[in-house]
Design a protein around this nucleic acid. Sequence first.
DNA 1: ATGACGTTGAATAC
DNA 2: GTATTCAACGTCAT
Length: 547
Amino acid sequence: MDAATAVTATAGAAAAMVWFRKGLRVHDNPALDAARRGAARVYPVFVLDPRYLRPDPAAHSPGSARAGVARVRFLLESLSDLDAGLRRLGSRLLLLRARDDVPDALCAALRDWNIGKLCFEADTEPYALARDKRVTDFAAALGIEVFTPVSHTLFDPAEIIEKNGGRPPLTYQSFLAIAGEPPKPVMAEYSELPLIGDTGEYELLPVPKLEELGYGDISQENISPFRGGETEALKRMRESLQDKEWVSMFEKPKGDPSAFLKPATTVLSPYLKFGCLSSRYFYHCIQEVYRSTKKHTKPPVSLTGQLLWRDFFYTVSFGTLSFDHMKGNKICKQIPWRQNEELFVAWRDGRTGYPWIDAIMIQLRKWGWMHHLARHSVACFLTRGDLFIHWEKGRDVFERLLIDSDWAINNGNWLWLSCSSFFYQYHRIYSPISFGKKYDPNGDYIRHFIPVLKDMPKEYIYEPWTAPLSVQEKARCIVGRDYPKPVVDHEAASKECRKRMGEAYASNRLGGNTVNGKTSESSRRKSSDGGQDASDLSKSKQPKRRS
DNA sequence: ATGACGTTGAATAC
DNA sequence: GTATTCAACGTCAT
């Protein structure tokens, strides 16, 4: 404490801190911009969270409890690049290591460095809201000025919800109708930042290398081809936007999920997730391309449409209690998912016996990224399509392994794909055989991610169990020995799933649990006039018809 | 009540 | 490549 007070004397009153969490960039960074204005000293801080970085030996793949190695690597690369960007402006990134709690570490620095103004980008995730409240409460008690601009998303989710009468819009179209045009990015040009202040006795850590974190032997794991950081983000964006024809004619559903050497999308999602790229700047740059071409596609399928989907899920997730759970979630269908650890593990580890499904899950584990439609295939397979396993189980696997894993978007898409919310046409099931085949009849994608199948003739590569034994022998891949037999029969399993979904939907209707929150109370009240609660009870007491 | 609509299904026919 | 059929969901405007 005494040392700390000594530090405050030299730091001066006009010290500001910019706290980085997401938003790992210099461009379009309102928090950084506000911190530098009128401050003699600026402390750019990132707090390393041991729960995010500490190796978890019990995890099903290398990494920590929260993140697979691919995303940890991406984060570290992003931090290195942020540090380099700040150094170009005469500053640097101050890395603090939390003992076990991020707010404690940050608050100690706020106090010890005598910070007068704290700036950080607003974050709407429940975890972040709880974390940030502890920091802002502490700052308020010390009389520290706090500035928390919205700059992660195009729009302010709270504002959209307010405009919609206090409830989040639950369809994309109604979201669009409210949203309008997003604010312009703040692209202030400046050549230097205020110097960092005295950091007293704080140990200033360099950005650790992935190898130093003790994840064991990760050399065997394929390395994700996507490098983190703002520099890489801007380079990747400019490369994508160079092909104006491609940008203006982009239609997401027409992309090829099996393309991996040159992905069918921009692969900017991980950079948006960490804020290495500003969504507003990206949006603005796409608009510029549109202005230079005769015509362009439109939301929901267009490139800007994808950014709007991101904001849609941020908004709904912000305005929905228990968005990341089935129970207690008003917009989520209540479905009696099956519990089957063996089938779940087969799915998670890419051992379902369906090469298309397994290749996608292996790409996920190794790269931390796969095409959107590939995600659809495996999510459908796990939940309503084949295995009838809870979407929360799949959500957890994606959340840990994806380099672009984003709380709002990941949960939103799992709700969507499992037909629990937003999308309800549960008869539309992705075939684990024919869906991939129509894009990649030769199975190059499968051969790349599942080397044991690389010599399987293309006639059998999507269904190796149908190959005659002589063919399997020639391909040096015996099904049941070198590659698993299918864990379920898709024809039978998907038929059963349809039936279960139909029953679950019927039961939800009778229970009055409609998605938009207005239960069938109103219609019931109208029809029963005298408030005959008994009929209501009897209705809800016999929801499960057995046929 | 009714009909149009919904980012991305599969199988089949032309 | 595009259209049709399959069987049929919830939401929203009328």
